[in-house]
Amino acid sequence: MVLFGSIVNIVLIIVGTLIGRFLNNIPERMKETVMYGIGLAVVAIGIQMTFESTQILIVIISIVVGALIGEWMDLDGKINQLGKWLERKLPSQKQGPGIAQGFVTATLIFVVGSMAIIGAIDSGLRNDHDVLIMKGVLDGFTSIILSSTLGLGVMFAAVPVFLYQAIITLFSTQISRFVPDDLLQFFISEMTATGGLMIVGIGLNLIGITKMRVANFIPGILVVGVVVTIVHFLF
């Protein structure tokens, strides 16, 4: 089933949220340590994915050009504006943080990451759900931590996560009809490596080492497609 990875992902988010609501008295020190552990795991996954590249120069070009486009478009700023708009539209809880706060925070963490894009494309192109399942496990643990402090709003993030990943997956199933297999494999390897660097950035942000605007790197995925196509047909 082509949407299996996305379904597992949202189920783990919901389960993690429900567990987190029963663990709302977790000591702050423990939450911090678990979040560091999640960050380290994300960094490790990103580094592993980066080694998929056969042409590291393509990865560098894609990251740099993608960052320039993302900064010019201010993708990170626009996503934050969307979060504030949702915060105003959704009703607040009577006690503790509003539902919107948990929803917006979780949505940004679960959707903005390039792992969602790469995993969804992998599911569509190769029926390989490993990346989305790994993402689901990470999202599940993150949901436990977030919902223990931000409430049930975290669970509602499962809706945009599923819609976002399902659209990308279903679109990806049609790519093989128009793209030669060798070009497709070339694109997958370089896209995986480029996305891996973005995932490293997400992990470093979770640990607190950096405050990268990772969303502004996302256009790099499109740049990979352009550069790989040029290299394939010219060389």
Results as ranks from 00 to 15, higher is better:
residue 1 M to C: 12
residue 8 V to D: 01
residue 12 L to C: 02
residue 16 G to M: 11
residue 17 T to Y: 01
residue 19 I to M: 09
residue 19 I to W: 06
residue 20 G to V: 13
residue 23 L to N: 10
residue 23 L to A: 14
residue 23 L to S: 13
residue 27 P to T: 10
residue 31 K to S: 08
residue 32 E to H: 15
residue 33 T to W: 08
residue 33 T to M: 13
residue 34 V to F: 00
residue 35 M to D: 01
residue 40 L to E: 01
residue 41 A to Y: 10
residue 43 V to D: 02
residue 44 A to Y: 09
residue 44 A to C: 06
residue 48 Q to M: 05
residue 48 Q to N: 12
residue 54 T to Q: 15
residue 54 T to G: 14
residue 56 I to M: 14
residue 57 L to T: 02
residue 60 I to T: 15
residue 60 I to L: 14
residue 62 S to F: 03
residue 62 S to V: 10
residue 63 I to N: 03
residue 66 G to K: 00
residue 67 A to Y: 14
residue 68 L to E: 08
residue 69 I to N: 05
residue 69 I to G: 00
residue 70 G to W: 06
residue 75 L to P: 09
residue 75 L to Y: 06
residue 76 D to V: 04
residue 77 G to Q: 07
residue 79 I to L: 10
residue 83 G to A: 15
residue 84 K to N: 12
residue 89 K to F: 12
residue 90 L to G: 00
residue 94 K to F: 05
residue 95 Q to Y: 11
residue 101 Q to H: 11
residue 102 G to M: 04
residue 105 T to I: 11
residue 105 T to D: 08
residue 108 L to T: 08
residue 111 V to T: 10
residue 114 S to M: 08
residue 117 I to S: 12
residue 118 I to E: 04
residue 122 D to G: 03
residue 122 D to R: 09
residue 123 S to C: 11
residue 128 D to W: 10
residue 129 H to W: 11
residue 130 D to Y: 11
residue 137 V to E: 00
residue 140 G to L: 00
residue 142 T to W: 13
residue 142 T to G: 14
residue 143 S to F: 13
residue 147 S to T: 02
residue 147 S to G: 10
residue 148 S to V: 10
residue 152 L to T: 06
residue 157 A to D: 07
residue 159 V to K: 12
residue 162 F to N: 02
residue 163 L to P: 03
residue 168 I to Y: 11
residue 170 L to C: 09
residue 173 T to D: 05
residue 173 T to L: 01
residue 177 R to Q: 14
residue 180 P to L: 09
residue 183 L to A: 12
residue 185 Q to D: 11
residue 188 I to L: 10
residue 188 I to F: 04
residue 190 E to R: 04
residue 191 M to N: 09
residue 194 T to A: 06
residue 196 G to A: 05
residue 198 M to C: 11
residue 199 I to E: 06
residue 204 L to A: 15
residue 209 I to C: 03
residue 213 R to A: 13
residue 217 F to A: 02
residue 218 I to D: 00
residue 218 I to G: 04
residue 219 P to K: 04
residue 223 V to F: 07
residue 224 V to P: 01
residue 225 G to Y: 09
residue 228 V to S: 04
residue 231 V to R: 09
residue 232 H to C: 13
residue 234 L to S: 10
residue 234 L to M: 12
